[in-house]
Simulated scan of single mutants.
Amino acid sequence: MIQKLKHKLDQKKIVSVRSLAKQYGISKSSAHRILKEDLELHVYKKKIEPRLTDEHKHKRKQFGNWVGHNFRKEDTMRILFSGEKMFDVDGIYNTQNECIWTGSRAEANDRGGIKMKQKFPQKVMLWLGVCSKGMTSLAIFDQGTVDHTEYIQNILPVALKYGNNTFGDHWTFQQDSAKAHIHHLIQK
Rank of each mutant, 00 (worst) to 15 (best):
I26P: 02
M77D: 08
K4G: 03
S30R: 13
D38G: 09
D169P: 08
K57Q: 08
N70K: 15
L185F: 06
K36R: 15
G168P: 04
L52Q: 09
L20D: 00
R51A: 11
K117T: 10
Q187R: 15
W171V: 02
G83W: 01
I34V: 15
Q122W: 05
F173P: 00
W127Q: 01
K6N: 06
K36P: 02
I140F: 13
H183P: 01
F71M: 15
M125W: 07
A159N: 13
L160N: 14
L41G: 03
I2T: 15
I100W: 02
T102W: 00
M135Q: 13
P157W: 06
A180R: 14
A108T: 04
L185N: 09
Q143G: 14
Q143M: 12
D10V: 04
F87G: 08
P157H: 09
G168V: 12
A139N: 07
Q122Y: 09
K45W: 03
Y93W: 05
S30K: 07
L80I: 08
N109G: 00
M1F: 07
G163P: 00
E150S: 14
K47V: 12
K28S: 04
I48D: 00
P157Q: 11
A180D: 02
Q187L: 15
L20E: 00
Q96M: 10
R51S: 12
N164I: 12
K133V: 09
V43P: 12
Q174K: 12
I155F: 01
T149F: 08
A106Y: 09
D110Q: 14
L41F: 05
K115D: 03
I79N: 09
I2V: 15
D142S: 09
L160M: 14
S177I: 08
I26A: 06
S104F: 10
I186S: 04
K8R: 15
Y151I: 03
H32V: 05
K59D: 10
H7W: 04
L5Q: 01
I152T: 01
D54R: 11
N94D: 07
E55Y: 06
S29F: 12
R33K: 11
V124P: 02
R105Q: 13
T172M: 06
D169Q: 14
E107L: 08
N65P: 00
R105C: 05
H58L: 12
C99A: 14
G134N: 10
W66G: 02
H32G: 05
H69Q: 14
V67W: 02
W171D: 04
D176A: 11
T102P: 00
H42K: 14
S137I: 07
G112C: 02
I34W: 07
F173R: 03
H56A: 12
N97Q: 15
R18K: 15
L9M: 11
H170I: 08
Q11K: 13
G25C: 11
L41E: 03
K119A: 12
K36G: 02
H184C: 12
K57M: 04
G91V: 06
L80Y: 01
V124C: 10
R18D: 07
S16D: 07
I186N: 03
R60W: 02
K85I: 03
V130D: 04
K188W: 10
Q96R: 14
I2N: 13
G112L: 03
V158G: 03
G134Q: 10
T149I: 12
L35R: 08
G168Y: 10
M86N: 13
T53G: 02
E98G: 04
